[in-house]
Amino acid sequence: MELRQLQYFVKVAQKEHVTQAAEELHVAQSAVSRQIHQLEEELGVHLFMQKGRNLQLTPVGQLFCKRVEGIMKDLERAVMEVHEFLDPENGEIRIGFPHSLGIHLIPSVVAEFRNRYPKVKFRFKQGMYPTLIRDVLSGEIDLAFVSPFPHSHEQIGGDIVLTEELHAILPPNHPLAGEKSIRLEQLKDEKFILFGSGYSLRPIVWDACIQAGFTPHVSFEGEETDTIRGLVAAGMGVSLLPEMALFQTNRLEPAKVKISEPKVTRTIGLIHRTDGKLPLVAQSFRTFLLNYFGLQQNIEAVCKPDIS
């Protein structure tokens, strides 16, 4: 069994088509077909079955593919660790984060880190809370900012790096737009524009409204902070967003008002797998981030080595 066979197998499994896999691998279609056939002969099983014009993994093919993908990720990590050992300032950091942190926080911390280590590369992945947790566990990413912090997850470790207040956002001509602060119950008769289910901000806002004594009437669900801000600014409803999602980016902006009661906040955590060693460059970035947020006392001994 050769590494090339496994690479070709995984690519065909992903594309479900030999021709498309061959094009992406930059090899002849016959070469891919031959390697897959040799692999099946060696294993003594059929890994694929025909489904229309596409190929589909057989049940045993699905089992084999899951294991092979893990092997390929481990191999990729091993190669990366060798390169980092030879040149630690030229490594790659794979980090995930929710959309709301991509407006200001992520660009700020990455820019400051790259000022110190300009050759370090970053691979970014935006996603919802469940997706980021899954990608950390699978090894797809090394670190992730998530909200809320997963306190009770056995396979996830990390630190709360920030507790952020949420503000009410209102149309500019709203009667309460000029107030310094309001009670959330003052918005009980308003139409709310919230994130859809699966986004961590939705239950935070929903629970705050329940605590304030009312169930929010949701008129629209969005997937991005800019969309929600724009709809509120256009007079379509009201919402609650964290401070970091309210940096002005457009001419048409909603009014931001502090909520005095109840206090509405979200925790932002920096997480990693507890059963896997972070690459040296990712350890260094984590150390940098904990210092950046003033959490030096939480830095574990294994993270003390820095790029030098």
Rank of each mutant, 00 (worst) to 15 (best):
L25R: 08
L290Y: 05
R266A: 12
E261T: 07
I106G: 10
E165K: 15
I103A: 14
E112P: 05
G237E: 07
Y199T: 05
P262M: 02
I182C: 08
M1I: 06
E154L: 11
P305D: 10
C209N: 03
V79E: 15
D226K: 10
T265V: 13
V238W: 08
M1E: 09
E41W: 01
K15P: 00
C65Y: 00
C209M: 04
H17Y: 07
L105N: 02
Q50R: 15
P88Q: 05
H153I: 04
A111W: 08
A301I: 11
A234M: 09
K258A: 12
P98Y: 04
E223C: 07
F293N: 00
E81L: 13
V146A: 03
F293D: 00
I204Y: 04
L194K: 01
L137N: 02
E154G: 06
L55D: 00
Q296S: 15
G44S: 05
F64E: 06
E2G: 10
R251Y: 15
M72C: 10
A168K: 09
V238P: 06
R116L: 12
K121A: 13
D275Q: 07
F288Y: 06
V82F: 14
P203L: 12
E224Y: 13
G276T: 15
L105P: 01
E190H: 10
P130G: 05
S138K: 09
V60E: 13
H151V: 06
P130T: 05
S260T: 01
R34N: 10
K263W: 12
S138Y: 03
P130R: 11
L63G: 08
L3W: 09
T58S: 02
F192Y: 03
